[in-house]
């Protein structure tokens, strides 16, 4: 699997918040237009906690998983964790991987904005190398999941109907 980028977006639960792209890896600096476009696809209108969202972005699928990060001082923040995946891959196969990463962090009580930012490179590398991810002392076992969803990229060209070629 090759993911070109991982993106973390957020709509804070605090008063006066607005949707933002928190981080993008490895491409860190995004142009204003790109930020706007990506944000509308990573956190589209009406999206809710627990949902997945798959959108086309240039030559890629943009796959997002929506989740909450608990807050004590105000209501919980809304987050999306997204990956850019080449369009030759079947995006539905990769949604369980996104969910597993976030759910494991949640179950181990370490899901936070800081952890997501600090370990974005490790998550990105883990996804691309199809290996387990280590975050603090927690091991997120992804290798079995990658085995299950492994697929050959589809190089098949669409058949042209009614073509004289």
């Amino acid at each position: 699997m090759y993911s070109e980028r991982t993106i973390i977006s957020k709509l804070g639960g605090n008063i006066g918040s607005h949707p933002i792209i928190l981080t993008s890896y490895p491409v860190k600096d995004l142009a204003e237009d790109e930020t706007k476009d990506l944000l509308s696809k990573c956190l589209p209108d009406g999206i809710k906690v627990g949902e997945f969202c798959i959108k086309r972005y240039k030559k890629h699928h943009l796959i997002s998983y929506i989740f909450r990060v608990e807050k004590q001082e105000h209501r919980d923040d809304l987050f999306s964790f997204s990956i850019l995946l080449h369009k030759k891959y079947q995006p539905d196969n990769y949604t369980p991987i996104l969910k597993k990463i976030i759910d494991d962090l949640q179950d181990n009580g370490v899901l936070s904005e800081e952890i997501l930012k600090d370990y974005q490179q490790e998550i990105y590398d883990g996804i691309n190398e199809e290996r387990d991810i280590k975050i603090e002392s927690n091991l997120i076992e992804l290798s079995d999941l990658f085995e299950k969803v492994k697929e050959e990229p589809s190089d098949e060209k669409p058949k042209l109907k009614g073509s004289f070629f």
Partner: peptide, 11 residues
């Protein structure tokens, strides 16, 4: 039920 903020709108 405690909610996260609404993204755009929900119906």
């Amino acid at each position: 039920i405690e909610h996260t903020p609404t993204m755009g709108k929900e119906q």
